[in-house]
Structure formats: C-alpha cells, structure tokens
Computed example of a mutant assay.
Amino acid sequence: MASRTPNTDATTQQLKDDLHHLSRTVEELVSATADDSRSNIKELRERAEQRLKDTRERLEARGERLYGEARDTVTHQADACDRYVHENPWTSIGIGAAVGMVIGMLIGRR
C-alpha cells in the first residue's frame, strides 16, 4: 500500500478546511433564519451558495487530478510489467506456471 505524500496530506487538510468553512456558513444561515432578518438571510445565503460552489469546484478538480495520477501510475506499472515479460520470457513463463500450479492445488482441495 502506498504511503501518504505531503501533497495528499495538504489536499486532505484543504478539504477539511473547505468543509469546515462551508458548515460554519450553513450554521450562520440557520441562525440568521431564526432572527428572520431578510437582508441578513439574503447575504448569508449568497455566502453559503458561493462557498458551496467553490468547494464543489475544488472537489471536482481534485477528483480529476487524482484520477489522472492513478491512471498514470497504473499505465506506468503495466508498461514496466510488459517490459519485464519481454526482457525475461522464460522467467515469466516459470512464474506463470508456478502461480497456475498453486491455484490448481487450491481449487483441487475443495
């Protein structure tokens, strides 16, 4: 399992901060509705909508970036595996045969 990178930790912290700010704004909106002050409600609603929009955009951007990083990592690993098999065909055949025997033995025990 891969260890967490400083970039991942920063992303996680930013997400926590975004959600904290959003929840605080929503709490303010709920408190303001108790006062029933129309101008105050409108201002807080606009702030809440803006923070929600900003948070959604950040989450979408992070999701796209994480997807791209995962895709690049998988592609790199598949290329490395392909290169190894082409450079060491007999070793690859031996590994495949050993794995097949183990799986066959496990299935045969049932």
Rank of each mutant, 00 (worst) to 15 (best):
residue 80 A to H: 05
residue 41 I to T: 06
residue 42 K to N: 06
residue 100 G to L: 12
residue 80 A to T: 09
residue 77 Q to D: 15
residue 24 R to E: 13
residue 13 Q to A: 15
residue 25 T to E: 14
residue 28 E to N: 15
residue 43 E to I: 09
residue 104 G to A: 14
residue 105 M to L: 14
residue 21 H to T: 08
residue 72 D to Y: 01
residue 11 T to W: 04
residue 95 I to W: 01
residue 86 H to Y: 10
residue 38 R to G: 00
residue 9 D to N: 10
residue 80 A to N: 08
residue 37 S to I: 09
residue 97 A to R: 01
residue 16 K to L: 12
residue 107 I to L: 06
residue 104 G to L: 12
residue 6 P to V: 01
residue 36 D to C: 03
residue 36 D to T: 06
residue 100 G to A: 15
residue 6 P to Y: 00
residue 20 H to D: 15
residue 24 R to G: 12
residue 73 T to W: 02
residue 63 G to D: 09
residue 85 V to A: 04
residue 33 T to D: 03
residue 80 A to P: 02
residue 69 E to C: 01
residue 57 E to W: 03
residue 9 D to T: 12
residue 77 Q to V: 11
residue 75 T to M: 11
residue 101 M to T: 11
residue 2 A to L: 13
residue 1 M to I: 08
residue 81 C to L: 12
residue 11 T to Y: 03
residue 108 G to T: 09
residue 88 N to F: 00
residue 53 K to S: 13
residue 70 A to L: 11
residue 23 S to N: 13
residue 71 R to L: 14
residue 40 N to R: 14
residue 55 T to D: 00
residue 98 A to H: 06
residue 2 A to V: 12
residue 110 R to V: 06
residue 27 E to F: 08
residue 50 Q to V: 02
residue 80 A to Y: 05
residue 14 Q to K: 09
residue 63 G to S: 08
residue 84 Y to R: 13
residue 97 A to P: 00
residue 71 R to K: 14
residue 44 L to R: 15
residue 3 S to M: 13
residue 85 V to C: 01
residue 61 A to C: 02
residue 14 Q to M: 11
residue 25 T to K: 13
residue 84 Y to N: 04
residue 4 R to F: 09
residue 18 D to G: 00
residue 101 M to I: 10
residue 100 G to C: 07
residue 81 C to H: 10
residue 84 Y to C: 03
residue 10 A to F: 01
residue 5 T to G: 00
residue 70 A to N: 08
residue 109 R to A: 10
residue 105 M to S: 04
residue 100 G to I: 00
residue 82 D to H: 08
residue 89 P to L: 06
residue 89 P to W: 04
residue 40 N to V: 07
residue 106 L to T: 02
residue 67 Y to L: 07
residue 5 T to K: 02
residue 45 R to C: 09
residue 93 I to E: 09
residue 66 L to V: 08
residue 99 V to Y: 02
residue 94 G to V: 08
residue 12 T to W: 08
residue 60 E to S: 10
residue 1 M to A: 14
residue 101 M to K: 04
residue 108 G to W: 13
residue 50 Q to H: 12
residue 82 D to R: 15
residue 96 G to M: 07
residue 61 A to I: 03
residue 62 R to C: 12
